[in-house]
Design a protein around this nucleic acid. Structure first.
Length: 773
DNA sequence: TTAGGGTTAG
C-alpha cells in the first residue's frame, strides 16, 4: 500500500496499517460499504485491538469511525469501551464526545460528559458548540456559565460558539459583555473568533461595531466565513464586505456564490459568476459544481449543456461531485435520459474509496450517484425505474442511506404503494437508522397518501421535534381524508407549538376547509395568511378559495372573487369554477366558464369533457355531441381514466372496459352477480354520468365497466374478507361508482378505500367518509 | 472556509 497515493483523510489508514490493525478496520469498513449488520464478535475484535495497541494510537483509530460516518458503530464501541473501563483518557473521551456532537447526538454526548472523570476546556467547548449546532442556544450558554463557575478558562473556540448562541437568540447585551471581557483580558483574536464577533454584531444589527472590527482585518477567512453563515437579512452587508476585499481567491468567490444561492439569491449568484468570468478568475472544480447546482435550480438547460461539453474537455470530468451534479442538473431540467447517460458513463465503483482500496477491485458502487439517479427517475415520474434501482441497490449491496430511503418513500406516496412503503419503513427500523425529520415527513406523507392515516399519525406522534414541513404533511393528510375539522385543529396546535406556517401549510388548511365545507373558517385563514403572516397568496391559494366557495354553492361570489383579485388569466381558477358549476348543475354559468377556460387552454380536454357531461346531464344530447366532435376535430384527447390496485408486490392497472387482465372472466362474472345483488338492496344506476346519447341498456354497460369498479372487484376476489381494499384512481370518482362502492361496502361488510385525484374516500357500512360532499 | 443526492401543495 503506497501512502503517497492516498488522500489526506487516509493518513490514518496508513497509520493503522503500520500498527497492524488491518483486520478490525477492514471489518468496519466493509460493514460501512455493504450495510451488513456488524456482529458482536467483530466488535470484540475491534475492541481487543483498541485495548492491546499503544495508547497514543487510540484517537487515530477512533478517527476511522469519524470517517465511516457511522453512529451505530460509535455507540456500540462507546458502550463496550466504557464498560471495560478503557476510556479513562481525557483525549479519547474528548474525541468520542466530539463525534457525538458531530452526529448531533447531544443526549449521548451529555451522558459521556457526566461519565468523564476529568474534563478540560476542550470537553466543555465540544459540548457547547454541539448544543449551538442543534439550535439549543440557551442550553449552550448555560453550559458556558457552568464552565466559568468551575473555573475553566474559555479559549477562542469556546467563545466563537458562545457568540453564535448570543446572536441566534438576540442576547446583544451578553455578547457585548463577553467582547469587553476578551478585550480586558487581552485575549488574542484569531481569524475564527474575529469572524464570530463580526457575525454576532452583524446579526445584532450593530453594523458600526462590525465594520470597526472588519476595518482592522484583511483576512479572507473572516469574510468568507461570514458570507457562508449569512442569512437573507445580511446579504447586503456580506456582499459589501466581499467587494471591499483587495484580493479574492477562488475559494472566496466560491463561498460567496454558493452562499448567495443557498440563501435564495440565485440571480445575484449568477451575476457574480459572470463577474468572475469578466475578471478572468479561474474556475476550479468547486466553482463548476456550484455553477451546475445553480443551473439546476434556475433550470437553464442550455447553459448546463455548455458546461457539460466544457467539463468533458477538462480534467474535472472525472470528479465524482461534478458527475453527480451533472446527473442532478439534467434530472431537474427534465432531461432524464441525458442524466442516465452521464450516470452510465460513471466509472462505477471507483467513487467508493473504501471498497476499491481495500479489495483492490471495483466491486462497490457509489450510494450518492445511485441515489441521485434514483431521485432523477422519481422527479420525472419514472417510478418503475426508480423502484428497480432501489431494489438493485439493496440486493447488490450498494449502500442505501437516508437520502435514498426518503426518495423511495416519496415515490411510494405518489403512487400509493402502501405495502412497499411499509417494507421500507420496516427495513429502516431493522437496519437501525436514526430517523431524521425529513425522512419522518416523507413517511407521514406516504402513509396518509396510501390511506393509512392512523400510521401517519403514529409516525407523527413519535417525532419529537417537529418543523413546518412535518406539521404540513400531517395537516395535509387529514385534509386529503376529508377530516377538515381535525386538520384545522392540528393547524391550531401547530401555532400553539410556535411553529410558523408557510405557504404550503395554508394550501393544506384551505383545502381542508373546502373539503369539509368550512367556508367561514377558510375565509378567515385566507386573510390571516395575508395579514398576519404576510404571505402573498399564489395560484394554489386562489384556486382553493374558488373551490371552497364553489363546493358550498356560492357561484356568484366566485365571479366577484375572480375579478376583485384579477385572476381571470389563471386557468386553474376557472377549472375549479367549472367543477363547481357541474356539481351544482348550473348549466348556463358552466357554459360561460368553459368558454373562458377554452380561451386560455384550447388544448385542454377538461373543459370539453365537463361541458359535454353537463349538456348530457340536462339531456342536451345534440349539444353534448357537438362539444365532443369539436374536441375531436381540434385533436384534443381526453386523459384516459385508470385505476390500480397493489397486491402481493404487484400493481394491477385497469382502464374502462378492460379485458386484458388474465382473470378478466372472473372479474366480469363476479361484477355482474354483485350488481344484481346490490340492486336488491336499493342500488340503482346513476345514468347522469353517461355522456353518449345511447340506449339505457347500453348506458349501463358503460358504467358497469368503469376502471375503479374493475379494480375493486379484482381486490374483492383476490383477498380475504378482513383485508381493506385500497384502490387508486388518476381522475375523480364518478357519482355512480361512488354509489356502487357505498352499497358494496354495506352488502359485503368490507372496508373499501379509494384515493382519487383530489382526496380519499373511505367506504364502510354503506357510508363514505366524504359525506357525499 | 468553498462542491453532490432527500421531505410538505399543484
Amino acid at each position: 500500500m503506497q501512502c503517497t497515493l492516498l488522500r489526506p483523510k487516509f493518513f490514518c489508514y496508513s497509520v493503522a496499517l503500520k500498527s497492524n490493525c488491518l483486520n478490525p478496520l477492514k471489518t468496519l469498513i466493509s460493514y460501512n460499504s455493504t450495510q451488513i449488520k456488524i456482529t458482536q464478535k467483530q466488535i470484540q475484535r475491534f475492541h481487543d485491538s483498541l485495548s492491546s495497541k499503544q495508547h497514543e494510537k487510540q484517537p487515530q483509530l477512533l478517527g476511522f469511525i469519524d470517517d465511516l460516518k457511522d453512529e451505530r458503530t460509535l455507540h456500540t464501541l462507546h458502550g463496550r469501551v466504557i464498560k471495560s473501563g478503557s476510556i479513562v483518557d481525557l483525549n479519547v473521551g474528548n474525541y468520542v464526545l466530539s463525534l457525538y456532537a458531530k452526529f448531533k447526538d447531544l443526549g449521548s454526548a451529555q451522558s459521556l460528559f457526566v461519565e468523564m472523570s476529568e474534563r478540560n476546556v476542550r470537553t466543555w467547548t465540544v459540548l457547547i458548540s454541539g448544543f449551538a449546532r442543534i439550535g439549543l442556544f440557551r442550553v449552550g450558554l448555560d453550559c458556558f456559565s457552568r464552565m466559568l463557575v468551575e473555573g475553566v478558562c474559555p479559549n477562542g473556540f469556546t467563545l466563537s460558539s458562545v457568540f453564535k448562541c448570543c446572536s441566534s437568540i438576540g442576547l446583544v447585551y451578553n455578547g457585548k459583555a463577553i467582547h469587553g471581557w476578551i478585550l480586558k483580558h487581552g485575549i488574542d483574536l484569531d481569524a475564527v473568533l474575529k469572524n464570530s464577533i463580526i457575525d454576532f454584531y452583524v446579526k445584532s444589527e450593530e453594523l458600526d461595531y462590525a465594520n470597526k472590527l472588519f476595518e482592522c482585518t484583511d483576512c479572507v477567512d473572516t469574510v468568507s466565513c461570514n458570507i457562508a453563515n449569512m442569512e437573507s437579512g445580511n446579504v447586503e452587508s456580506s456582499l459589501g464586505m466581499f467587494r471591499r476585499l483587495s484580493t479574492k481567491d477562488v475559494a472566496t468567490w466560491n463561498t460567496v456564490i454558493s452562499g448567495m444561492m443557498k440563501n435564495g439569491f440565485e440571480g445575484t449568484a449568477l451575476e457574480l459568476l459572470y463577474e468572475m468570468v469578466k475578471e478572468q478568475a479561474c474556475f476550479d472544480e468547486f466553482t463548476y459544481a456550484i455553477t451546475l447546482a445553480l443551473v439546476s435550480s434556475l433550470s437553464i438547460l442550455g447553459l448546463g449543456a455548455q458546461l457539460h461539453a466544457r467539463l468533458i474537455r477538462l480534467r474535472f470530468y472525472d470528479n465524482e461531485y461534478i458527475r453527480t451534479s451533472l446527473i442532478d442538473m439534467y434530472s431537474k431540467c427534465g432531461v432524464i435520459d441525458k442524466a442516465s447517460v452521464v450516470f452510465k458513463q460513471m466509472p462505477q465503483g471507483l467513487s467508493n474509496k473504501h471498497a476499491s482500496k481495500i479489495n483492490g477491485e471495483n466491486l462497490k458502487m457509489d450510494t450518492v450517484s445511485w441515489s441521485s439517479m434514483l431521485s432523477g427517475y422519481a422527479q420525472n415520474g419514472r417510478f418503475g425505474e426508480a423502484l428497480e434501482m432501489f431494489c438493485h441497490m439493496v440486493r447488490e449491496g450498494i449502500g442505501v442511506d437516508k437520502y435514498t430511503l426518503t426518495t423511495i418513500v416519496s415515490v411510494c406516496a405518489d403512487y400509493g404503494f402502501l405495502e412497499f412503503g411499509e417494507q421500507i419503513h420496516g427495513l429502516t427500523h431493522k437496519v437501525g437508522y436514526k430517523f431524521d425529520l425529513v425522512f419522518c415527513s416523507s413517511l407521514v406523507d406516504m402513509y396518509s397518501k396510501c390511506g393509512s392515516l392512523g400510521n401517519a399519525q403514529t409516525v407523527f406522534d413519535q417525532t419529537v421535534t417537529r418543523n413546518t414541513i412535518l406539521w404540513t404533511a400531517i395537516i395535509n393528510g387529514y385534509a386529503f381524508h376529508g377530516l377538515g375539522k381535525e386538520a384545522v385543529r392540528l393547524f391550531q396546535m401547530m401555532l400553539e407549538d410556535d411553529v410558523q406556517p408557510n405557504e404550503i401549510t395554508f394550501v393544506a388548511v384551505l383545502t381542508a376547509c373546502s373539503h369539509a365545507g368550512l367556508v367561514d373558517e377558510g375565509r378567515n385563514f385566507f386573510s390571516v395568511m395575508k395579514e398576519v403572516y404576510k404571505i402573498k397568496p399564489g395560484v394554489e391559494h386562489f384556486t382553493c378559495m374558488v373551490d371552497l366557495f364553489g363546493r358550498a354553492g356560492y357561484l356568484d361570489e366566485i365571479k366577484n372573487f375572480i375579478y376583485e383579485n384579477n385572476l381571470s388569466h389563471l386557468s386553474s381558477v376557472w377549472r375549479a369554477f367549472l367543477s363547481s358549476c357541474r356539481l351544482h348543475k348550473s348549466y348556463d354559468m358552466g357554459k360561460w366558464v368553459s368558454e373562458k377556460l377554452l380561451e386560455l387552454e384550447p388544448l385542454d380536454a377538461e373543459p370539453y369533457v365537463l361541458l359535454s357531461n353537463m349538456c348530457a346531464t340536462s339531456n342536451r344530447w345534440e349539444e353534448s355531441a357537438r362539444v365532443r366532435s369539436s374536441m375531436q376535430k381540434k385533436g384534443v384527447r381526453k386523459h384516459p381514466g385508470q385505476s390500480w390496485i397493489q397486491l402481493n408486490n404487484q400493481v394491477h392497472t385497469f382502464v374502462m372496459g378492460d379485458r386484458t387482465h388474465p382473470q378478466e372472466a372472473d372479474i366480469y362474472s363476479y361484477l355482474d352477480n354483485l350488481i344484481g345483488r346490490l340492486k336488491e338492496i336499493g342500488y340503482c344506476t346513476n345514468l347522469e354520468q353517461v355522456t353518449q346519447d345511447v340506449e339505457e341498456e347500453q348506458q349501463e354497460m358503460f358504467l358497469r365497466s368503469h376502471s375503479e369498479k374493475l379494480a375493486v372487484v379484482y381486490g374483492i376476489i383476490s383477498t380475504t374478507s378482513l383485508t381493506p381494499i385500497r384502490v387508486m384512481k388518476n381522475l375523480r370518482l364518478c357519482t355512480d361508482c361512488h354509489n356502487f362502492l357505498k352499497y358494496t361496502s354495506q352488502l359485503l361488510g368490507r372496508e373499501i378505500i379509494v384515493r382519487d385525484i383530489r382526496r380519499f374516500h373511505h367506504f364502510k357500512d354503506g357510508l363514505c367518509s366524504c359525506g357525499d360532499y
